Amino acid sequence: MVIKRALLSAVLVLLALVLQVSVLGRLQLPGATPDLLLLVVVGLGLVFGPSGGCLTGFAAGLLADLAPPSDHAIGRYALVLCLMGYAAGLLRAEPGRPRSVLVPLVVVAGAALVSTVLYAGVGALVGDTAARHVGLPSLMVTALLYDLLLAPFVVPAVMLLARWADPSAAGGEVNGPGLGTIARYRTTRESSGLPSSGRKIRTKS
């Protein structure tokens, strides 16, 4: 399972990085650039949890730091995506608990805003004033808009592939929250000497 998770994460991160650099980075959109890597990291974090999201985010960010035409300090984006992956993993649904379809969008919205501020803040510490020239509010608004437009097409697909790679990481959502609840109820009743219907067992004396 670990190898399958690692291979899937590597493929998704590399694919997102190629599209980020060769397609999205050349669109010359006003303000920020759509962050496909962030969406992939958030989707994997929501399934694999804090440790998986953190490791994936760090690896994805480090690759983005090294990939041309990178013009910022190495490790800057790795730190941002590492934190975003960890935070997304903390919001992973508990086994057997249903989750609203709006939760991934809310997580993406928060990650888009926080990552933009963190990236600009770390840049200011190392002398990068590009965000100051463009305007941080403009970057935050455009990053939020672009990422939310891409999220419904990217995040659900990433989460579906992640659950396929490691069904145990999906908790009770693989079989559905209702089926997971029924299974646990039956196990509890049978271990206490009661049938699954809830009626006591009668024995002849």
Score class of each variant (00 low, 15 high):
Asp166Ser: 07
Leu145Cys: 03
Glu190Gly: 04
Leu102Ile: 09
Pro152Met: 00
Ser205Gln: 09
Gly49Ser: 04
Leu102Pro: 14
Arg5Ile: 00
Val126Gly: 01
Arg99Asp: 03
Val158Lys: 07
Ala109Gln: 10
Pro69Ser: 00
Arg184Lys: 15
Leu105Asp: 02
Val117Thr: 02
Pro177Asn: 06
Leu37Asp: 05
Glu94Arg: 15
Leu90Ile: 12
Arg97Gln: 15
Pro50Asn: 01
Arg92Glu: 05
Leu37Arg: 06
Glu190Tyr: 12
Leu14Gln: 02
Phe153Val: 04
Val114Cys: 12
Thr56Pro: 14
Val23Asn: 02
Ser191His: 10
Pro95Ile: 09
Val40Ile: 07
Ala124Asn: 05
Arg163Ala: 06
Pro156Ile: 01
Leu125Lys: 01
Asp35Leu: 10
Val134Met: 08
Pro68Ala: 01
Val2Ser: 03
Leu7Lys: 00
Arg97Ser: 04
Ala124Trp: 14
Thr188Gln: 11
Phe48Asn: 04
Ile201Ser: 03
Ala131Tyr: 05
Leu36Thr: 04
Gly176Tyr: 12
Cys82His: 12
Phe153Lys: 00
Arg184Ala: 12
Ala151Leu: 02
Arg132Ser: 01
Ile182Glu: 10
Ser196Asp: 14
Pro50Phe: 08
Val23Gly: 04
Val122Ile: 14
Ser9Arg: 07
Tyr119Thr: 03
Gly171Thr: 11
Asp166Glu: 13
Val11Cys: 00
Gly198His: 10
Ala109Met: 14
Glu173Ile: 13
Cys54Thr: 10
Leu125His: 01
Arg76Asp: 00
Ala162Ser: 08
Gly180Val: 11
Gly45Phe: 11
Ala143Phe: 04
Leu12Ile: 01
Val101Arg: 15
Ala120Ile: 05
Met140Glu: 01
Leu29Met: 09
